[in-house]
Each structure stands twice: as C-alpha cells, then as structure tokens.
Amino acid sequence: MKKNILGILGLFIFIFGFTAVSNENFLSAYNLQNLVKWSSLYAIMGIGVAFVIITGGIDLSIGSVIGLVASLMALMVRSEWNPTVAVLVLIALSVGIGLVHGLLVTKMKLQPFVVTLCGLLFYRGISRWTTDNQSMGYGDTETLNSFFSGKMAIGSFGLPAPFFFLVVVAILAGIFLNRTIWGRYLLALGNNEEGARYSGIGTDRLKITAYVICSFLAGLSGLLFAYELDSVQPAQTGEFYELYAIAAAVLGGCSLRGGQGTILGVIIAAAVIRLLRNSINLLGISTHLEYAIIGMVILCGVAADEIIKRVMARRRTAQVTSAKK
C-alpha cells in the first residue's frame, strides 16, 4: 500500500516541477494559496467517498448533497436564521442523508449505485424546488465567511480556511482508518464482506458509518464551497463533483472493488487533479483539452498502479515458492 502513495506522489512532484519550471508565476504565494485551497476542498470530498469506496460501495450523490446544503444555507441566511444554528442543522441533515443511504444499502439490500444515483437526482431536485432555482448569495455574515473561506496569514502566505478543515478531517480519518479497530474492520469488510461477518464483525453498522462519514464530509464541503464562491446556483453548484471525488479516491489508491485505500493517497490525488487544472491554465493549454488531460492522467495513474501491484504479487509468489524449497 505504501507503494501506491509513492506512485501518485511521484506524479504530483513531476507535474509540480514541470509547471514551476515552465511558468515563473506558478510559485507565487497567490497561486499556491489558490492551489492549496482548491486541493483541500476536493480532498475533503475525496476522503468522504474513499470511506464508502473502501467498503466496496459508491456514492454518486456527493455533488447534489453539496448543492442542497449550499442552497439551503443561502435560504436560511436569507430568512435570517442564526448562522451557527443553520450550520448545525445542515450538518445534521447531511448526517441524516448518509444514514438513509447506509440503511437502504444494508437493511434493504439495495445497490449503492442505485441508492445514491436516486439521491443525486432527488437532492438536486429539492435544491431547485426549495429555491425556485434562483441563484443566491450569502450576504454579509462576516463571521461565517471568515470561518469557512478566510485566510490565516503565515508571513506573506495566507493559508486558506479549507486547508485547516482538511488537516483536521485528514488526521481524524487517518487515525480512524489505520489505528482503530473500526478502521481495520472497514478494510476487512471491503475486502471480503462475508469473511468479515464470519469473523464476528457487525458489517452493517460499519457500512452505515461509512455512508454517514461520506455525506457528512459532502455537507461540510457544501458549506466550504458555498462560502468560497459566495453564491449558489441550485441547479449547478456541486454538479459532477462526485466524479472528481471518486477520481481522487481511485487515483489515490482506493480500489472500487473495496478494501483498499489511504487517506494520504486521496489527498495527494486531489491535489494532482487541481494541480493539473492549474497548470493547464498557466501553460495556456486550451481549456477544451482539460477534461481529456485529466482523464488521461487518471487512467495512466490507475494503470501504473495496477502494474506495480502485479509485479509485487509476482515477487511474493516467487518468495513463497522459494521459501518452500
């Protein structure tokens, strides 16, 4: 698993170095701040979906949950809710959404793809309906604004708020996945759900937890995105973000078959995706090529991963055979 991170880290360093050499402004504080900000936003979503992917599931509703949370926040601000209460209510709503997904997947035995696809449509529809599909801003809630999208100056470098959120989320997620029994159970059940159940693991509860984490982080990203852009389009905010989140998770070493994934890998992968966009813009490559380049890089990254894995498996087999002789 360590090897997975090395591959993606190498890719990151390569693109970073290449762009830095090609464009003198790349290393400016302003640009790096932006890069850190967007990477953090994507990584938070990516970490969320990584948990679900580790269980062997998928969550397609992330973008719509982001849209819903962002839209409702704007509505609540407009109706003069206490901002703190509004944030708490929306976080609770996100957790509730994850809980419903988890229950439908485990207790009703519905396929995660179907459940979350319906979620994708449903939450988007609700966002548009409750807001009459009107674009909205967030007005002047200064405290929340600086909380979610402010900057903390360190010398001339302003670390953006999403970065601090990411640090907290990543540390907690890393500890959960690698240091607690539940993280171990999650990896076990992702590899082999029946096997985990036969080992006395309450697999349903863990899966539900994974969906809750995913939707919770989607909701958190919704607030972060909303305050970052300071405006919400109920029909568009967050659209397709689930695909970026899934791409980050997969590029970061999660297997869609489940059972594999590292938090650090996902963060680096999210950074790679944002870095690619940044360098496409800075190098003046046509924006029309952007998707093609991102798609290609992800494909190459995943393919390289698979090759490394096979080589390692072959080495292991050789090891075992020689150990026997």
Partner: peptide
C-alpha cells in the same frame, strides 16, 4: 474464513481486536 488480501497478522487478530482494544484503538 479469511480476508485473503490481508496479512497473516491482520487475519490472525481479526476476531480478537475487539478484546484487545483500548478505547477503539488497536
């Protein structure tokens, strides 16, 4: 019976983890 992709260590301890945990930590 086993989680094939996991190591000997992880498989051996799987049912016991619950008993050896300290506040959830392995």
């Amino acid at each position: 019976g086993l989680i094939l992709e996991m190591s000997v260590r992880e498989n051996a301890s799987l049912p016991r983890l619950r008993m050896d945990q300290k506040a959830g930590a392995i």
